[in-house]
């Protein structure tokens, strides 16, 4: 862990990262307010979130100065999390074609899935 000598520099670093997170939050809100064409708003939104998360993980959670063992644990988790994400989504991208969009019980026709 960081020894006391450069504790001061660390504290300054924490405040800077805090500031960066504030700015990024404002950015992500503004981006979603002024609409961006369909696929890109997702990409930008997720990119900002990933950037913020990586800031928190690397600096606040000291991952930059962490031992390799923690990287292995997180690597294994990431590997399995990817399958948890990708495969159900790939499956449902096909299954949505099979969904019966019934008329809404209130009577008007449900919007046809584009």
């Amino acid at each position: 862990m960081s020894d006391h000598a450069d504790a001061k520099s660390h504290e300054k670093l924490y405040w800077m990262v805090g500031g960066a997170l504030f700015v990024l939050t404002i950015a992500t809100v503004l981006v979603s307010k002024y609409h961006i064409p369909h696929p890109w708003n997702y990409v930008v939104g997720i990119a900002i979130a990933v950037l913020k998360a990586s800031l928190v993980v690397s600096i606040f959670m000291h991952l930059k100065w962490e031992s390799r063992l923690i990287y292995y644990v997180l690597g294994i988790t990431a590997f399995f999390a990817v399958f948890l994400f990708v495969l159900p989504i790939v499956d449902f991208s096909w299954t949505t074609g099979q969904i019966i969009h019934r008329a809404d019980p209130a009577g008007h026709e449900a919007v046809e899935h584009h």
């Binding site: 923690i70 997180l74 294994i76 988790t77 948890l84 989504i89 449900a110």
Partner: peptide, 29 residues
């Protein structure tokens, strides 16, 4: 080591919630 392992399991827990969110959103009319 214990807390990082616990956070790994939490990543899988919230990852499942996000997968369900994405799946339900793509399948919703």
């Amino acid at each position: 080591l214990a807390i990082w392992l616990f956070l790994a399991s939490e990543v899988m827990l919230f990852g499942t919630l996000f997968t369900s969110y994405i799946v339900l959103r793509t399948a919703a009319a």
